[in-house]
């Protein structure tokens, strides 16, 4: 038996792919951004903080929560608490009550746009603008995994009330695609700029949050220094507690030509996202224990159409 992976004739490869799919009707094991420890595995990669993980589905323990788009507002309960209307426009997912006055305690027990009903955390990101007009997002997939190379058994649930921000809302030059990037479809790898995406794999913003915590502070003055990214499979001594690496993949109904994209925070390069942990504490602990600590693939974003991050009825 031999491994036959012929080099396709380039001029017809893509067509053959499509048509052969039509013949056999295959189930692409679809996947999302899937991840494997170690990034590209190079020494250089090991020496710097590692974010996105890529590889076959099933490689990395995870649980996944899919959440519909909930609402938008010029609010930011982390950066501008108690000051409605002072922020740039944000799209909110998860907890449906999130506004400028929200606190982790106020959100507990509220309705959620997530399919896991006890995920009452809040996720938000700047609104995507097309020709200056807000684009209504399709929804998001939230992947919770051990950070790259982190011992799964060492991962602890976020403390109630932990807040995190990833990405730089002021950026006007490219950010590291290890943490912020644009991709086509759930399987696409993040790039600095949005590409022209096919209809079956529309645009996604992908962001990765830090996976290590200082063990003390739920927040910090700059909202970032209480957490850090692991390096080479280890949390730094300043941030010794391994927490789930949260990756958000936010879908937008953007494909094809004719778009002029920016973000409500400014440049299309200013991608960022916020997380406020208001999960039901028992449920989050259970998911971390059952899935991450035991190195289990508890769920995958499977072969669904990429534009399905599904709209859900309002509550």
């Amino acid at each position: 038996m031999t491994d036959v992976v012929p080099a396709p004739r380039r001029h017809r490869g893509a067509v053959v792919v499509g048509l052969t799919l039509a013949v056999v009707g295959i189930l692409v094991a679809g996947a999302v951004l899937l991840l494997g420890p170690g990034g590209d595995g190079s020494p250089a990669a090991a020496a710097t903080a590692t974010g996105f993980q890529d590889g076959p589905q099933g490689l990395v323990p995870q649980f996944v929560v899919t959440c519909a788009y909930s609402h938008s507002a010029y609010d930011d309960p982390i950066v501008a608490p108690g000051q409605p209307g002072l922020s740039h426009r944000h799209d909110f997912f998860g907890n449906r009550s999130t506004d400028a006055y929200s606190t982790p305690d106020s959100m507990l027990g509220q309705a959620t746009s997530c399919e896991r009903q006890l995920d009452t955390a809040a996720y938000w990101a700047p609104s995507l603008l097309d020709h200056g007009q807000p684009v209504s997002p399709l929804g998001l997939d939230a992947y919770y995994r051990p950070g790259p190379g982190i011992d799964p058994a060492s991962v602890q649930p976020y403390p109630h009330g932990l807040v995190m921000i990833t990405g730089d809302h002021t950026a006007t030059t490219p950010q590291s695609t290890a943490f912020v990037g644009w991709a086509c479809g759930s399987q696409g790898e993040p790039e600095v700029l949005p590409a022209r995406c096919p209809a079956e794999a529309p645009l996604r913003l992908k962001v990765v949050f830090p996976d290590c915590w200082d063990g003390v502070s739920l927040d910090s003055e700059d909202h970032t220094s209480h957490v850090a990214a692991s390096v080479g499979g280890h949390c730094p001594s300043s941030h010794p507690v391994a927490i789930p690496q949260l990756t958000l993949s936010i879908g937008y109904p953007i494909s094809g030509d004719g778009h002029d994209l920016s973000l409500s925070s400014g440049s299309i390069l200013s991608g960022h996202a916020d997380f406020m942990n208001a999960w039901d504490e028992v449920e989050l602990s259970r998911q971390v224990r059952a899935c991450l600590n035991r190195a289990l693939v508890c769920g995958v974003v499977s072969n669904k159409r990429d534009d399905i991050v599904r709209p859900m009825p309002s509550h």
Binding site: M1, G25, I26, L27
Partner: peptide, 19 residues
């Protein structure tokens, strides 16, 4: 259908890259 299963239209049994 998903985007790919929609392409399975009208096939009984497919062994695709199987051994």
């Amino acid at each position: 259908a998903t985007d790919t299963t929609s392409l399975a239209m009208g096939v009984g049994i497919a062994v695709a890259g199987g051994r």
